[in-house]
Design a protein around this nucleic acid. Structure first.
Lengths: 189, 189
DNA sequence: ATCTTTTGATTGACTGACCAATCAATCCAT
DNA sequence: ATGGATTGATTGGTCAGTCAATCAAAAGAT
């Protein structure tokens, strides 16, 4: 791993952590750099500006998520099992860490003013949707797209809600909720 | 209406609009005041600080929402009809305006660092939950709380998602989604 | 009714802090 | 020594919050 890619990774990781602790995008490059153990100037050197750094952090979490989904799907067989896998991944500890959730929430905010952020988020939506549809189709046919929309909405809703519920909602609970909703939809077939 | 309460209302309204157009909480009191047609100093005079102004805007939207729910419930009879009413209100045009959605999303962010904001959001959650449980109970008994949690999560998820989906999701579509989810749960009784 | 006092609304100008971004100067590995 | 990595110092700009001054209208006094 080259020095450059190492620093970039440090800074991206620190960005997510910092957004998580501060709870908003009002994080200074200085704070992020300090957390990464480097000077703020280095942050600008490698990323060119604060926005690019935020975008990189966003892309990073999406890349991680995507890889996890692929991994989980590779180990699953049959539609039902694959659906469970896709749903589970959203709530495994890596993605359900409080700072990751906070960052995710703020990416939604970022998406309101940054075209690139919006594109990234749209990609996530589409990927989730298509994954769900792919394995819903053999089970419920034409109703797959609309049910996928519903399950996707529920996943995001539980995820966002968990950012503020005083009682930390466990990932297992959230997973169970979505799986239950899935079962209801399958029953209605 | 006294001058004071009039100005306060102007400023609160301008705050929501400004958050909506900027898309984040990075709004200056100056911008808000300008939109309200007054000087920034007046904003500080009446609210004491930026945070109080944001909180006031948040409380305002929640008050509106609460009143609408009460109104809708008053005109509904029977559990099923009342459930529909509660669900519908979240997506009527007043609450489904793009700037209101953006503001709402940012209130979630604000709740990460402001105890008062978190309390307000918790109150909303509890109210929604208890409304749903109240009318779910006669239909599905003990399963009411967990189903209410699910429906609440779905409502919030669709709401937040609508903030960024390029294709503007219509309030009717969102309502239909939640009502469909409700029907699935009732079928499973 | 008229003059005076008081109160509250309102603002423009100002400040102190903070921050993104820049850059010239070091550091360090090869 | 050379070139990329790294930084400290600096700058230009922005913004929350303050303050003294102005203005209008209500309240009181005669």
């Amino acid at each position: 791993m080259s020095v450059e890619s190492q620093r970039r990774a440090q800074l991206v990781e620190a960005t997510i952590r910092e957004i998580g602790t501060v709870g908003s995008l009002d994080v200074t490059v200085g704070q992020i750099a300090k957390r990464a153990g480097v000077s703020s100037a280095l942050g600008f050197h490698y990323f060119g500006g604060k926005d690019s750094l935020l975008l990189a952090a966003m892309q990073h979490t999406l890349t991680i998520y995507g890889a996890q989904v692929r991994g989980a799907l590779a180990m699953s067989h049959g539609p039902r099992e694959r659906l469970e896998a896709v749903i589970r991944v959203s709530f495994i500890p890596t993605n359900f860490r409080s700072d990751v959730i906070a960052a995710w929430l703020n990416f939604y905010v970022l998406a309101q003013r940054s075209k690139r952020a919006r594109r990234l988020l749209t990609i996530y939506h589409r990927r989730l949707h298509s994954n769900l549809v792919h394995d819903l189709k053999p089970l419920i046919g034409d109703r797959a797209p609309v049910v996928a929309e519903r399950l996707g909405g529920l996943i995001d809703g539980l995820y966002v809600r968990s950012a503020i519920t005083p009682k930390r909602v466990s990932g297992e609970d959230a997973t169970a909720h979505v799986l239950a909703a899935l079962d209801r939809e399958l029953d209605a077939a």
